[in-house]
Amino acid sequence: MAILETKKLTKAFGALTAVNDVSLAVEAGTLHSIIGPNGAGKTTLFNLLTGTFPPSSGRILYDGRDITGTPASRIAHLGLARSYQRTTVFPAFSLLDNVWTAAFATGNSWSGLMWRRTDRYPEVTERARQALSDVGLSSKSNQLAREISHGEHRQLELAIALAAAPRVLLLDEPAAGLSPDETRKMVALVRALKGRYTIVLIEHKMDIIMSVSDRISVMHFGSLIAEGTPEEIQKNPEVRRAYLGGVAA
């Protein structure tokens, strides 16, 4: 069953149609990748899915429910969490506080919001620690986010998304700017998360995509041009043309 679905989703910024008539169905429990050249509209698609801005037309269905136009701050509560391509964390917070803030948002209750000390929420803190340990940052939980390396920022980015205890993870280029060695670690991490969550992955690096994806959708100039298993996509002539600028095929 499709847990996340878009129907003829379109977003236009003036004359530019960044996302054009995209109909996509993500099956529950799978890892579904979205690939495409720079500027293909992948991140815009994520922004639509997470309510950063509303679509110009079309619909978004989550778990069979129409969530089109739901504001960003509600989306996390529905069970959709995202990570960002450009690191978007809370720099002056410790790593634990970064994930704690995300864990609290989707916690069972906000009782004591204005009065109870933050260390008196054992279940939230537990979930936050778990998210940090899932990405391998447990040992740095008291360090400030502004003091860690780029690679660790990418891990923290992922941990903040995990702390929300989501059903669907939307990962926007988790390996952006990572060294080959760090990339391997990140791939192992994503693979470990596979199965526990439904994952929608945006990625540029082909080797990552082909090794972890169950299904792949290819975007080009805002439109979906192909969808299939990694093997099917590798053989698809239209995809090759999009990637190699019409030379091949």
């Binding site: 509560h77 964390v89 809370f90």
Partner: peptide
């Protein structure tokens, strides 16, 4: 610290 992320995590 980060309004965009605060919104995205659910506030």
């Amino acid at each position: 610290e980060n309004e965009i992320r605060a919104e995205a995590v659910g506030y």
